[in-house]
């Protein structure tokens, strides 16, 4: 019944670790896209064009309310229907980047909203320009709040990368599936994948929490 084979673990571990590299790459690439795109989505909602605000707002809501795995399929398969071929990596990065951009845009918004009204008023009363108000007064105070959310979603995107396996991105889950069907053994590959995820996400989450505390301290908040 319980039949854990260490030599099998020895055999497949190098393959899984190599795939871990792909998983990390996918997470970081996707996150990079999300950080930039998220900012654009957040700023677009602060402009004075109601139509743009509204459209972006609804788009973000839509992305956040629907499953990522379905979005991955959508991006991957809809292209070819209209003659655009996307590689699994490209489609995957677009889907996951866009998904997390929507979440990050909310994090940015919340960060900015967390700065008390009085700070805007004080900046106005000192006749600071809009750019200076953002760069020197608002953004620095928004960072500690935003940082926690950004950190959560960095770990979140990492944990969502297994969904890329459904379109054939050769990350951890995909590799574990392949090993499983080659050897008809699922215990070791799936357990190892779980452990690898734990081994990366727990320390990262811990480090991010510490960094957040440091940031708050350095800024004299708290």
């Amino acid at each position: 019944m319980f039949d854990w084979r260490w030599e099998f673990v020895g055999d497949i571990l190098p393959r899984l670790l190599k795939a871990t590299g792909n998983t990390l790459l996918a997470a970081l690439l996707g996150y990079g896209i999300a950080v930039v795109l998220g900012l654009i989505l957040a700023l677009a909602q602060r402009t004075h064009y109601p139509l743009l605000n509204r459209t972006v707002r609804e788009f973000v809501e839509f992305i956040r309310s629907t499953p990522l795995v379905l979005q991955i399929f959508f991006v991957f398969y809809v292209g070819p229907q209209f003659g655009i071929m996307l590689s699994p990596w490209t489609a995957g990065m677009i889907a996951i980047g866009l998904h997390y951009a929507s979440y990050l845009s909310e994090v940015y918004r919340a960060g900015i909203d967390s700065v008390p009204m009085g700070q805007w008023e004080a900046a106005t009363s000192l006749s600071l320009s809009a750019a200076r108000t953002y760069s020197r007064i608002i953004i620095p105070q928004a960072i500690p709040t935003a940082f926690a959310g950004m950190g959560n979603y960095l770990v979140g995107i990492f944990k969502d990368t297994p969904m890329l396996s459904v379109i054939g991105v050769a990350e951890l889950m995909h590799t574990a599936n392949a090993i499983g069907s080659e050897h008809y053994r699922f215990l070791e590959p799936y357990t190892l994948v779980g452990l690898i995820f734990l081994a990366i996400s727990l320390p990262t989450a811990g480090a991010l929490r510490k960094a957040e505390g440091k940031i708050r301290e350095n800024m004299g908040l708290r």
Binding site: F2, D160, M163, S165, M173, Y190, G194, F197, L198, L202
Partner: peptide, 22 residues
């Protein structure tokens, strides 16, 4: 920590494919 530290998909596969071995 275990359930938040790993992926839902990993957990799903584990429960469906590995638990029967137990």
């Amino acid at each position: 920590e275990v359930f938040r530290g790993t992926s839902l998909l990993v957990q799903l596969y584990w429960i469906f494919f590995v638990l029967p071995l137990f």
